[in-house]
Every structure is written in structure tokens, then in C-alpha cells.
């Protein structure tokens, strides 16, 4: 898998965003400073601890890390594919001897890296406001890698189906962000009525935010609100399901490349 061709494409994709920090890393850093300052310090100071022993700013960090990670992974992959299609330079890749799987994994991998870097930036910004100690490091890393890859995989699909740049904006603003905002980033599920707790469980973002929160803070809402039987293993079950979903999405990406969906005539 790690052929010279794969490494060349992966490197190209990483260089594209690394060389433009003003476009790629500065905006999430600034946005998250604002989030922590306004929601954490100004408003958070007036909000009781959502969970016993965890202050509001600390509670916010995992959700904002997830938000930054997945939106950047998605945006990077969808932009890279769509912009390449729009200006047709994706032909440089398509006419090369890279296998379809190598192409997809290079795009997904590089976009996931961008998502993870943004996730770390958000965590560092959060650290400026409150001390953090990682509770389940290995679990946290595994979860972050999986969700970054998952949304990079979704980004590939977005980049292939988009017909213009507005479509990309719609996907990010009207699908991704609402799901994240209702994904227990800013509140604990335990604060909701039972019926809304169950409705929230239909939102896949809830599991991602909860898993990262478990990895970072050692606290999982699922232990309190998920159905018995699932609750006990919730974070690990979530990680397993998310891993499976990521594999399925990447397989779909490879299939779409193979049939040339959005790429060939």
C-alpha cells in the first residue's frame, strides 16, 4: 500500500494544507479561542457543572475537538476532490498508475491528518483556559483517528457528488454543523428529558463526542443514558461501530473511484 506513488500523492495532499496555515489552521484556532472565551469563560462561569467534578470549559473541550476535527477532515477531502475536478487537475492522479485504493487512502489519510492537527490545536487552545489530563490516551487516539478518517471518507463522497462550491457549503453548514451542535458538544445528555435523550441517541455525532470525552475526561454520558446492556460497554462499542462505518465509507469511496463517479465521462 505504501508505494512510491501513494507516498507522492499523500505528500502532495499534506503539503497543500500545511503551506496555507492562514487558510487551514488559523481559522479554527481563532474560532475556538472565541468559543472558549464566550461559552466557557463568560457564559460558563454562570453555568453549573454539567457533570459533577467537571467544569464547563473542560466539558466543552472534547466536543469542540470533535467539531474541529471532523469539519476540517471533511472540508479538506471534499475541497481537494472537488477543486481538482473543477480545474481538472485531478486528471494528474487519475491518469497515473496508482490503484483506486491507493488514491482514496492517500486523500483520506491526508485529510484525516489535517483534521487531527486541528483537533490538537483546539485542545491546545482549551489548555490555555483550563488544565487537561488525558484519562484514556490510547482509546482517545484510536477514536480520533477513526472519526477523522470517517469524515475524510465522507468528504470524498461530498467532493464527488458536488456540482458546485455551494453544494460543499450546504453539506458543511446544513448537515454537519447541526448534527454536531445537537451532538452533546455544549451540554450533557443527562441534562435532557428522557425522550430527548433517546432522540439524541439517533444522532451519530453523539457517540463520537461521547467517545472522545470518555478518552479525554474519563466520563461518558452513555453510561447514564444508553439502554442497559449497551451502556456498560458504550465507548468501546461506539469505537467498534465507528471503525466499521469508516471501513464501509472508505470502501464506497474506492468503489466510486473505480466506476469513475464524478471523475470520468
Amino acid at each position: 500500500m505504501l508505494s512510491v506513488g501513494f507516498r507522492a500523492l499523500f505528500r502532495r495532499e499534506v503539503l497543500r494544507f500545511v503551506r496555507r496555515p492562514k487558510n487551514t489552521f488559523m481559522p479554527p484556532a481563532i474560532t475556538n479561542v472565541l468559543y472558549f472565551a464566550v461559552f466557557g469563560v463568560i457564559l460558563g462561569g454562570r453555568i453549573d457543572e454539567p457533570v459533577e467534578g467537571i467544569g464547563y470549559i473542560l466539558f466543552l473541550i472534547p466536543g469542540l475537538v470533535v467539531l474541529g476535527t471532523i469539519s476540517n477532515a471533511f472540508e479538506n477531502a471534499s475541497f481537494s476532490i472537488f477543486h481538482g475536478r473543477w480545474n481538472e487537475y485531478i486528471h494528474e492522479t487519475l491518469t497515473s498508475p496508482l490503484s483506486y485504493a491507493e488514491m482514496v487512502v492517500a486523500y483520506v489519510g491526508a485529510s484525516a491528518v489535517r483534521g487531527l492537527i486541528v483537533g490538537v490545536i483546539v485542545a491546545i487552545v482549551g489548555r490555555l483556559f483550563v488544565p487537561i489530563s488525558v484519562e484514556n490516551g490510547l482509546f482517545l487516539v484510536a477514536t480520533m483517528v477513526v472519526i477523522a478518517a470517517l469524515f475524510a471518507g465522507f468528504g470524498i463522497i461530498g467532493g464527488l457528488v458536488a456540482r458546485d462550491f455551494d453544494d460543499l457549503t450546504v453539506m458543511n453548514q446544513f448537515i454537519l454543523r447541526p448534527l454536531v451542535f445537537f451532538g452533546a458538544v455544549f451540554y450533557s445528555l443527562t441534562m435532557l428529558d428522557t425522550i430527548w435523550q433517546y432522540v439524541s441517541l439517533l444522532n451519530p455525532m453523539v457517540y463520537m463526542v461521547d467517545s472522545v470525552r470518555y478518552g479525554l475526561l474519563g466520563y461518558s454520558d452513555m453510561h447514564h443514558v444508553a439502554p442497559a446492556g449497551y451502556a456498560e460497554f458504550a465507548p468501546y462499542a461506539s469505537l467498534a461501530i465507528l471503525s466499521l462505518l469508516t471501513a464501509v465509507v472508505i470502501a464506497i469511496d474506492v468503489y466510486l473511484f473505480k466506476i469513475g463517479y464524478g471523475l470520468t465521462d
Binding site: 508505494s3 512510491v4 506513488g5 507516498r7 507522492a8 500523492l9 505528500r11 502532495r12 494528474e92 492522479t93 497515473s96 498508475p97 496508482l98
Partner: peptide, 11 residues
């Protein structure tokens, strides 16, 4: 360089 790389030419 990228194009050559895609074709397996070392860096």
C-alpha cells in the same frame, strides 16, 4: 515531481 512520483519515480 508529483506527477513523476505518482508513476513510482522516487523523490
Amino acid at each position: 515531481q508529483h506527477k513523476a512520483g505518482y508513476h513510482g519515480v522516487p523523490e
